[in-house]
Amino acid sequence: MTQKKHKPRSATAPAKAKTKSGQSPSKAVDSEPARTAKANPPGRKKPNDRDLEIKDEKTLSALGPQLNRLLNARPEIAAMLFVNPVLAMKEAGVKLSRPVTHHILSRLRHRPAMRERREKLEARLRKALGEVPRPNNPVWLSQTLFEKLQLPPLETRNLTPRYKPAHEADAEKRLQALRPRRTHRYPRLSSRPQHTGQLSMQAVPPPSARRLDLAADIPRPGPARHPPKRLSLEALYFYKDSDPIARDLLELAIIQRRGLRLHSRYSYRLIKEGKRRNVFRRWFRKVTLPEPESKE
């Protein structure tokens, strides 16, 4: 369990300490399923998961270990937690109330600080634009910037945004040291061209909108004749210093991109059935959730 010592525990968070200490949250649980779950640890007998119902956050907190055990017993579902945790839980037989569903999704989509920033940006943009901001929609973005805000179009073709490095510079430096020393072995070859070959590595990982560097100083591009009908985030990047709303839109878009992508029921099914590719489905061979009670 991740310890967040510097943060006050959320009132709605699972009572990790409690559970670890063995205090049963039985009062908050529909009693029969809880007992069933306890009596049937994984590997012995499949729990009657259809009876596990979580109506509120308190119940969620209390039933956490049992829920984990339930998911561990269904490894084919456990990996799907990263596709859509709510749908995965429901598939495992857990009934979630609407508030609990909302709670889980909002919690998992972003870390708290990012969630807070997103909500602030969304509120500010909604007020400024009079509608829900949709910065990851290129058509909406074009209409907003060039029709609603009347910003002059900029010539952004062939321009590359600045990205924050995906990795720490120290590690890159250490890796550089693994490369062989440079040599000049054939200096006397007079007819040799300056060089015959180059070897270079493309940016790895490739540039991602998630890593657009909002703080970078960039020269303002020249004007464009016509506004594009679709505006990508990479193009929006060059408007960040032109207008505060444009900058907020870019930041909100980045935050949205950084959120856990929660797939729709339809997409979830396609991924589960292998009809749609998904990194987690492809790569995650086994997902094991802690089962605090069973450890004790």
Partner: peptide, 23 residues
Amino acid sequence: EGCKLIIDAPEVGDFDFDQSCCD
């Protein structure tokens, strides 16, 4: 200037790096 071998970003299939934070 000559020839150049460019090491492209390794691939794990057709997954999109920019798909979501999960990637």
